[in-house]
């Protein structure tokens, strides 16, 4: 609780977060980074082969 309170008091003074910065602030971030690298290594095997055609032909009727 106190930790969060502390964080909360200064949101407007905090510098804008660089969302694409290399995480390294916690074990959790390190773990996620390693998993992402593994996924990116093998992702081409599951990706649609012709991305341009796939995206172009993905047309839906509007719904609710």
């Amino acid at each position: 609780m106190t930790e969060r309170e502390q964080i909360r008091k200064t949101p407007t003074e905090a510098p804008a977060i660089e969302v694409d910065e290399t995480p390294g602030v916690s074990d959790q971030a390190e773990k996620l980074k390693a998993e992402l690298d593994d996924l990116l290594d093998e992702i081409d095997e599951v990706l649609e082969t012709n991305a341009e055609e796939f995206v172009r032909s993905f047309v839906q009727k509007g719904g609710q």
Binding site: I7, P11, I17, V19, E21, P23, Q28, A29, L32
Partner: peptide, 17 residues
């Protein structure tokens, strides 16, 4: 809710899971 807001405030990318 509290955990996620705290994460969004400090390091949103750590909420990737």
């Amino acid at each position: 809710w509290e955990e996620v807001l705290t994460g969004l405030e400090s390091d949103p990318m750590a909420l990737a899971d």
